[in-house]
Design a protein around this nucleic acid. Structure first.
Lengths: 141, 141
DNA sequence: GTCTAATTAATAAGGATTTTCCAATTGTAT
DNA sequence: ATACAATTGGAAAATCCTTATTAATTAGAC
């Protein structure tokens, strides 16, 4: 799986650095859709000299070469997802976590939109909002 | 239609001011989902002394009383829509305009998500991205 | 018409993310 | 191994949307 980023980076003329691989690894290993700062914090132990600027520059490159997608679920910051497949997300309005919604069928919806709009569509983002199971418990008291 | 805002404002204990009515009128009369600054600019001719702060405070109140909904289509700023019905939006990646997608059936999609997630859902936002007809023409050269 | 609290206008301040800068370092082609 | 261009790191700075502040004005109740 590292192979793929390595090759893609080289192909596109980017250098393969430990920082870039580390950032991609984080994203590939999590389902939490971290923001730049979350990635930065998670790298602190193993890369104490990692710079936030490097995180930002790297996710931009990763997006450019198609290895990650960028989310904006109505927060102030962006989130990054190594799962580049089209899938809806749900954000907890209480704690802010963002989860995947898997195995949802929405091609009918997308096709209907495509057939009814005169836009040339290139993508879409589906965000659901609500309260996650954990916060339902703690709010229940 | 002004009647409705007027009454609602009074009911909720807000004063009815020309500024508030003017801002709502703009939103009710357009399908362009303007941001606070766009509203501000559009009001310049008729309300040269209108303050951006007033626009922000007013849209917040209008949202609170349920007369408008707030959109965030992955831009830096928020957009406001007097059409409070649930409907998808599409944003042009070229010129930035945001359009409605009307008469789209998505209740099946929503129901499927609701039945498969353990979140307690309270809402959703569907954003499509692409190139609008106008920009398709100008990019075609 | 008076009164009072809410609202406005204008500007300053805030807030937080993201970008820029540049010297030092590092990947990679030769 | 060498050389060069790309990249990193650290901090500062830009961005820019949004909120706070405050004196003056105004809506609405009586």
């Amino acid at each position: 799986m590292d192979k793929e980023v390595t090759n893609l980076l080289r192909e596109k003329g980017f250098k393969v650095t430990p920082q870039r691989l580390a950032i991609y690894k984080i994203l590939a290993a999590t389902k939490s859709h971290p923001s730049a700062e979350m990635i930065f914090n998670e790298l602190q132990p193993s890369y104490p000299t990692m710079s936030l600027a490097t995180v930002y520059k790297t996710v931009d490159i990763l997006r450019e070469i198609g290895m990650i997608q960028v989310l904006n679920a109505g927060e102030d910051s962006f989130r990054y997802d190594a799962d580049t497949s089209d899938h809806p997300h749900v954000r907890c309005l209480e704690c802010g976590r963002v989860d995947d919604l898997n195995n949802i069928e929405f091609s009918g919806f997308v096709n209907e939109v495509a057939s009814k709009t005169s836009y040339r569509l290139t993508g879409q983002q589906f965000y659901f909002y609500g309260i996650c199971p954990e916060c339902q418990k703690s709010t229940a008291n």
